[in-house]
């Protein structure tokens, strides 16, 4: 029996529902009480702004360290017209008046993750960070401060992008241990050699593409470095054009060119037309010595079908040319 399938109407319904939800959100949000009616969780204690110099009186070490970073250099004001320490920590008047009362200043470490990020997004919600809200990392309770550290010690090198670890690879590897391990595989991207990093392909702040890829599709992402693969071809190989991951694992593999399985099995998972694609190729030419068949050694099936990513040769239908 044919398995039950839902019709395309469900998709259309979902699309419609999303549009309605959007409209609803706009209407509701417009009618929602403004900030003054319901202070947001990240709101700072009320009070006077005192300026960063006042902060440095007690927090000299932090001020010195901060001065070495872009946050220290900038004189840009946030949308409330405030610059310096108080652009993140809120007005420090009550804190100063309270002789350093920690309850009277916004300490980001005490905020919920979403509230921490909200403070950062006040200035940074644009460019690569514009899709943070609702992104996978946001949804799992991570915040900007999970990966970034604003106040590094004054006597230490400041990691790029104020990361919590010395390198981007180490920062991502804190949670993504599997990915870190995968780079030790025989076939891997030049990541542990330092040529590319996680953010060469991914934008951890949220994207419109799948799995936080920087581009809108897997293939567009791969074409960023492999421009020779992007040309429209006379003879297209559909799984290639649809998704590079049908055959490759970019995080590392046991098999050359990061293929997901060994030749010839990787091709035979699809190619079960008659004749040679359907031969098992597990035989030894001369038993008992094992010697690989011509579809097993070197490039396997690609020994003959070498233009497997597509061909522009009139005689390249089977990717020989």
């Amino acid at each position: 029996m044919r398995r039950s399938r839902k019709s395309g109407r469900v998709l259309k319904s979902a699309l419609g529902a999303s549009c309605l939800a959007t409209a609803f959100a706009v209407v509701v949000a417009r009618g929602a009480p403004q900030e003054e009616g319901a202070p947001p969780p990240a709101a700072a204690p009320a009070g006077e702004y005192v300026g960063s110099e006042a902060c440095a009186t007690c927090h000299e070490e932090q001020a010195t360290a901060l001065a070495r970073t872009a946050h220290g250099r900038t004189q840009a004001k946030n949308w409330d017209g405030v610059a310096g320490c108080e652009s993140c920590h809120g007005p420090g008047g009550a804190h100063v008046a309270g002789e350093g009362d920690k309850e009277k200043i916004r300490n980001l470490g005490n905020l919920a993750a979403a509230d921490q990020s909200e403070v950062c997004l006040t200035c940074h919600e644009r460019g690569d960070r514009a899709h943070w809200q609702g992104s996978p990392h946001d949804g799992r309770g991570l915040s900007c401060l999970t990966c970034h550290k604003i106040h590094h010690p004054a006597d230490a090198a400041v990691p790029k992008a104020l990361l919590t670890k010395k390198t981007e690879f180490a920062t991502c590897g804190t949670c993504h241990l599997k990915r870190k391990a995968a780079l030790m595989r025989s076939a891997h991207m030049p990541m542990r050699e330092g040529t590319i990093t996680c953010t060469s392909c991914h934008n951890p702040h949220g994207t419109t593409g799948p799995t936080l890829l920087k581009q809108d599709s897997v293939n567009e992402n791969c074409y960023s470095c492999h421009a020779e693969k992007r040309a429209p071809m006379l003879w297209e190989h559909p799984p290639v054009r649809e998704n590079c991951l049908n055959c490759h694992d970019p995080h590392g593999s046991l098999h050359p060119r990061m293929q997901i399985a060994k030749q010839p099995r990787i091709c035979q998972q699809c190619h079960d037309e008659a004749r040679h694609p359907t031969q098992p190729y597990s035989d030894a030419s001369v038993a008992p010595e094992f010697f690989p068949n011509s579809r097993m050694f070197d490039r396997g099936c690609l020994n003959c079908h070498s233009q497997i990513h597509g061909s522009n040769h009139p005689a390249g239908m089977r990717f020989h040319r």
Binding site: A25, V26, V28, A29, R30, A32, P33, Q34, E35, P40, E118, E125, R126, A130, H131, Y223, A227, E228, R230, A231, P232, M233, S306, Q307, S311, N312, H313, G316, H320, R321
Partner: peptide, 24 residues
Amino acid sequence: MLLGADNHWARVSLFGGLNLPGRT
């Protein structure tokens, strides 16, 4: 056999985000 084909690629993208009250 053919080794590769020259190609041209061009992209135009428009993007935007709107913050509404109620953290929307």
